[in-house]
């Protein structure tokens, strides 16, 4: 049986001292806030890209996430969780509201198709595209927390412990959720 728990780095719950210092500075120094933004913008953008399914909305929601972070940073208090946990929570709430307001499901991203369209045999490309599209549909029909788990696990390459710290669950709960998510994804793929 293959293991669902990869060899993971040591669990790092709270921010590092360097990060903590930067966060404190960012509360009163705009340039420090700019550095904080630079450190996390790619992660938040990726998360929103896969939650929305396209780069335009991902950009819009990334901007909203950081504006909200700026607005509430003075109230941020470290509670033993990584700073990213706070940012992901803001991004999650924003994407949930966005989906509810527009009553729309995420769409399968087209950006990647454009990137790959110039390469290789058209038949092969078509098959690849079908494979990608079915996977993205199956992925996007998962519950938000399951999508979040897969993004953190697959895209960000985080360990179960790190994901647990971000999602506010135990490492064991993440392991079990990951297994159930894969099974659900398998069922979704069979249904497509």
């Amino acid at each position: 049986m293959f293991s669902l728990v990869e060899s993971s780095p040591a669990r790092s719950d709270g921010p590092s001292s360097d990060e903590r210092e930067l966060i404190e500075r960012a509360k009163r120094d705009p340039e420090a806030f700019g550095l904080l933004y630079e450190r996390y913008v790619a992660q938040i953008y990726r998360y929103l890209y896969y939650r929305t399914g396209n780069s335009q909305d991902a950009e819009d929601l990334t901007a909203r996430t950081f504006y909200r972070a700026l607005e509430h940073l003075h109230r941020y208090q470290e509670r033993g969780l990584p700073f990213t946990a706070w940012l992901y929570r803001i991004a999650h709430n924003i994407v949930v509201n966005w989906q509810r307001d527009r009553r729309r499901r995420p769409v399968v991203a087209l950006d990647y198709v454009v990137t790959r369209a110039a390469e290789g045999d058209p038949q092969e490309m078509l098959e690849e595209e079908e494979e990608r599209e079915s996977l993205m549909r199956a992925f996007q029909s998962l519950a938000p927390d399951r999508q979040e788990l897969l993004i953190l696990k697959v895209v960000e390459g985080m360990s179960n412990a790190q994901i647990g710290a971000i999602m506010g669950r135990s490492e064991g709960a993440i392991k079990s959720l990951y297994h159930r998510t894969l099974l659900e994804l398998k069922r979704n793929l069979e249904g497509i």
Binding site: E38, V41, A58, E59, T62, Y112, L150, V154, V155
Partner: peptide, 16 residues
Amino acid sequence: WLVPVEPPPAFARSLK
């Protein structure tokens, strides 16, 4: 298929 995409540099710069 879930590859680590990067934000467009122009967007990231202007938002900063």
